[in-house]
Simulated assay, not measured.
Amino acid sequence: MILVFGRTGQVARELAAASDDVRCLGRTEADLSVPGACDAAIRAIRPAAVINAAAWTDVDAAEAEEEAATRINGAAPGEMARACADLGIPLVHISTDYVFDGSGDAPWSPDDATAPLGAYGRSKLAGEKAVVAEGCAHVILRTSWVFSGHGRNFLLTMLRLGAERERLTVVADQIGGPTPADAIAAACLKVQDALRDGAPSGIHHFAGTPDVSWADFARGIFEAAGMCCTVEGIPASAWPAPAARPANSRMDCSALRAAFGIERPDWREGTGRILAARL
């Protein structure tokens, strides 16, 4: 049995749907903000593998509540990794492109220097370092721009706004790879299986293709949905927020393909699956 931290998040829900061998723990069963909760859950259940799909994801709120975000995104994954190391259990931990500063226009490789722009990125980087330090068999899977047919995400926001308005302004100078949550779930399951068979630990990137701006992602959504909503691209500076976002979230995913045979998912196909399921 695979223990998943997270129940209502996008990836956790897709993991539950993808496998009967998954047990998802929500906050009432394992509150990542409570020291010892993750350790106790792992030791009580003793699963074959652990996937951490739970996180503090409110990027802007993290600026004002960095200590709380770091407890959930930093200390809790380290606690999971420590228990996994003690019990000989592999861990797959989901991280983010926000560990980079978003400079340049080249895709980020797993071994590139990290330099988070804000509290959220710092908290996620703390989690990565904690997992590595504990020495369990692990894969840290950095992903970006996650979307699905449930929860709060860009695709669902665009579908709602596109039905209400004829024109939207969307940021056009941030570039990344939108990633379907069901593809992340499938990647996590494949990776944990490989770790159980002795695959080496490491940090890998997994993001959708092709890379686009938020504005072009919105245009692709409206085209696929047959919605007549015009998108005007604007600079990120015209949409101020408490936390800075990386301008360049392109991810080099070649190491993941080489190690595990996992290809980048096409976000246009993922969008089509979600739209078809909503009909």
Rank of each mutant, 00 (worst) to 15 (best):
F206G: 01
E29M: 08
P200A: 15
I262Y: 03
A68V: 13
E67H: 13
R245N: 09
S148Y: 00
P246V: 09
S33D: 14
A194W: 02
G208I: 06
A137D: 15
G151P: 05
Q174R: 15
A115N: 14
V146S: 01
D193C: 04
A75D: 14
A17M: 07
C136R: 06
T169S: 15
D111Y: 01
A61H: 12
V50A: 06
G78K: 06
A130P: 06
P90H: 03
E263V: 01
L3T: 06
A44P: 00
E29G: 06
G198D: 08
H205N: 15
T169W: 04
D31S: 08
G135D: 10
P240Y: 11
A187C: 08
A113C: 05
G9A: 02
N73H: 08
E63A: 11
A64P: 01
L275R: 11
A194F: 10
G233I: 09
A224F: 00
L125A: 08
S123T: 12
H138I: 05
R7F: 05
L155C: 12
I140F: 03
N248M: 09
E14T: 13
M251I: 01
E14F: 01
H204V: 07
S213P: 04
G36S: 07
S95E: 07
A258V: 00
H150R: 14
D211I: 00
G198H: 09
R268F: 09
E223F: 04
G176Y: 01
L32K: 05
A218M: 07
A113K: 14
I42A: 05
C229Q: 13
S123L: 12
P107R: 04
W214S: 13
D58M: 03
G162T: 04
P107C: 10
D97N: 13
D101L: 07
W214D: 01
A243I: 06
T179K: 10
A49Y: 06
G270W: 03
G135H: 11
A133I: 01
G118V: 08
C136S: 11
G220C: 05
R196A: 15
A55K: 06
D20E: 14
T28C: 03
A85Y: 09
I2H: 14
N73P: 12
G162H: 06
A30Q: 01
A225S: 14
S148T: 12
K124R: 15
A187K: 03
F154R: 04
A81Q: 05
G118L: 00
L159Q: 13
L15I: 12
A133C: 11
A259L: 03
V131L: 02
I262A: 02
A76C: 14
R152V: 14
K190D: 05
R278C: 01
G261E: 10
R278P: 00
R142H: 07
I94Y: 06
R7D: 11
I45R: 09
R264D: 11
G261L: 08
L25W: 03
L3W: 07
G272M: 11
G26H: 12
P180H: 01
A119G: 02
C228I: 03
M80W: 00
V191M: 14
I42V: 15
D252Y: 05
L275Q: 07
L141H: 04
D216G: 00
P107T: 09
E232R: 13
A16V: 10
S109L: 09
V171A: 01
I72W: 06
T271F: 00
G121M: 05
A12S: 15
R257G: 00
K190M: 02
